[in-house]
Amino acid sequence: MPEPSEAELVVTGVDTHDWGATEDDEEQVLRDLGYVLNPLTGIYEGDGHPDPDAREDGGA
């Protein structure tokens, strides 16, 4: 039996649930981080407050 292709594996195994559980305080956390809700898109936008850990990633 041939190995399934990546496309077949994606269809059966990736994001078959549209929504994963998020945290109850998600919106409050995002606001506290300095992001701003765009009411038209529902997206929290902006750069937020400076992140003291941002340099740890070595260039991410």
Partner: peptide
Amino acid sequence: NTGDACKRRVRS
């Protein structure tokens, strides 16, 4: 693709 969109999330 979180709700078919690109978004910020908080995860545990």
